[in-house]
Write a protein that binds this DNA or RNA. Structure first.
Lengths: 231, 231
DNA sequence: CGCGGCGTTGATCTCTGTCAATACTTGTGG
DNA sequence: CCACAAGTATTGACAGAGATCAACGCCGCG
C-alpha cells in the first residue's frame, strides 16, 4: 500500500476521523490486493469475516433471490468502505459482493476491527458515522425509486458521476450498462430507451462515452416534477 | 415507565445487550410519553437531538420531496428504536417521523447517548448492532420493490404482521390503508386492487380486518416466481 | 471467419398511476 | 336521532411506463 492508497483510506468516513495511530493499526499488514473483474468477494449467507476499502475500481453489492435474480443494492467506488456494519450484525453477510471492474482493495478482518473498538472506543464512533451514511444512501435510494422515472434516475446517476456542477462534459461509463440498469432498478432495454429519452436534453452516447452538453440542464430535468411530459 | 415498558425497552437490539446499569442510565428520567395520532416527532432537515423507543403504537418515518410528495421509508412498531443512528451522522435528520396511531414512546437525547458511549464503549457495540439491523431492513426493502409485484408485496406485508407461520388467522390492519400503500411503494387504489387479487388465495377483507384462510398459501404466493399468472 | 457476449431496437402486453365518480365511516350540530 | 360534511376506501375507465420477447447489429476474440 503506497502513499496514494493511504490517502484514499484516510479519505473514508470510517478512517478519516481516527487518529493516525489507530487508523494504521487497523490496516496494518493488509496489503492492497488487485482483483480482476468478476471476482466474488463474499457471498450472501456466508460468515461475515471481512470488510473492505475500495482503492480503485468498482464493487457491486447485491442480493440474490431464491430464483437467482440479482438486485444490485449499491456499487461502491474509490474512497468507500463496505460491509463494515455487517460485522456487527448476525454473523452473516446479508448481501453478496463482486468486483464490477478490475479493483484495488484493502481487506480488513472483523476481528481486528472489534479488537480496535475494544481498545479505542473512538473507532466505534467512526463506525457509526460510516454506517449512518450508508443508511442515508439507502433511504435516498428508496425514495428515488418511488418518485423518479427511469430516465430521471439515469440522469441523476450521470450527474452524480461528474464532480463539476455545470457546463459540458464527457463521461466514461464506469461499468457495464446492464449493471447500471440493475443498480437503477430497471432492465437493460429500459436503460437504452432512457438514454434515448435524454437526447433532447443534450445527452449523446457513443459506446461507453456519454457526452452531456450542459450539466445544469440535466440536473434541471432530474428535479422536474412529473407535470410536463418528457417529449 | 412501568415494568412492562421496561421489558419492551430491554427487548430492543440496542438495549437488550447492555448491562442493566447502563440501560437504566440511558433512559433515566425519561418518562414514557403518550402521543396522539398525527404528531410530528421530528422533521427532515431539523437538528437531530433525540432518538426514540416505541412502547406501543406505530410511527411512520418518511422522506418529503421538494414538491411535498411523501415516501414512507419504514413504519416502526413496539419494541423498535429509530433515529438512533442519525445522531452520529451530520447533525440533521434525513427523514421525518410522525405517529401513525396513538403511541407510547420514550425519547432519549443524543447527548446522553454520546456520553454513555464515552463512558461505556459497550454501548457503541449495541448501537452498531441496531444500526446494522436497520441497514438490512432497508436492503431487503429495496430488493422487495425491485422483484415483487404489488400483490406480492402486500401478501408479504400481511404475512410479516402475523407471528405464526401457518394455519388460518385474522389480522387487524395496524394503521390506515393509505399508509400501508405508501409503505409498500404503491398508491391506495393499487392497494385496493392488490387486496382483491389476493382473494383467490384465501384472503378476505372487512373494514380493517383481514382474514387469511391459510398463511402457508399466502407465503407460497409471495415466493412465487413471476412465471404463472395471478389469475 | 464465425462465434458469443453485450447492447439496441421494435412489437406487444401487463401492471400501475391517474382521474373521476361513488360508497362507506366518522364526527358534528341541530 | 337524524342530516350533513369530511375524510377514507373502493371501483371503473383510461393512459403511460416499463417488462417481455424476439430479432438484429456491433465488437472482440479465438
Amino acid at each position: 500500500m503506497d502513499t496514494a492508497d493511504w490517502q484514499i483510506v484516510r479519505s473514508t468516513p470510517l478512517f478519516g476521523a481516527l487518529s493516525r495511530d489507530t487508523a494504521e493499526r487497523l490496516v496494518e499488514g493488509q496489503g492492497a490486493r488487485v482483483c480482476d473483474k468478476g471476482v466474488m468477494l463474499f457471498e450472501q449467507g456466508a460468515p461475515a469475516e471481512f470488510f473492505y476499502v475500495v482503492l480503485a475500481g468498482w464493487v457491486k453489492v447485491f442480493r440474490v433471490a431464491t430464483d437467482g435474480q440479482e438486485t444490485v443494492v449499491h456499487v461502491f467506488r474509490q474512497g468507500e468502505t463496505f460491509a463494515e456494519a455487517v460485522i456487527f450484525m448476525g454473523g452473516r453477510y446479508p448481501v453478496s459482493a463482486e468486483t464490477a471492474t478490475t479493483c484495488r482493495l484493502v481487506r480488513i478482518s472483523g476481528k481486528r476491527l472489534r479488537d480496535c473498538i475494544r481498545d479505542e472506543p473512538e473507532v466505534a464512533l467512526s463506525m457509526l458515522a460510516s454506517t449512518s451514511r450508508h443508511l442515508k444512501v439507502l433511504v435516498e435510494q428508496i425514495e428515488q425509486m418511488n418518485r423518479m422515472s427511469a430516465p430521471q434516475r439515469l440522469a441523476d446517476f450521470l450527474v452524480q458521476l461528474h464532480p463539476r456542477s455545470d457546463g459540458p462534459c464527457t463521461i466514461e461509463l464506469p461499468f457495464e450498462k446492464s449493471l447500471i440498469a440493475n443498480r437503477l432498478g430497471m432492465k437493460p432495454e429500459s436503460l437504452s430507451r432512457a438514454l434515448a429519452k435524454l437526447r433532447p436534453f443534450g445527452v449523446s452516447v457513443l459506446r461507453d462515452a456519454v457526452t452531456i452538453e450542459e450539466l445544469g440542464r440535466l440536473q434541471q430535468f432530474v428535479a422536474t416534477e412529473v407535470e410536463d411530459g418528457v417529449g
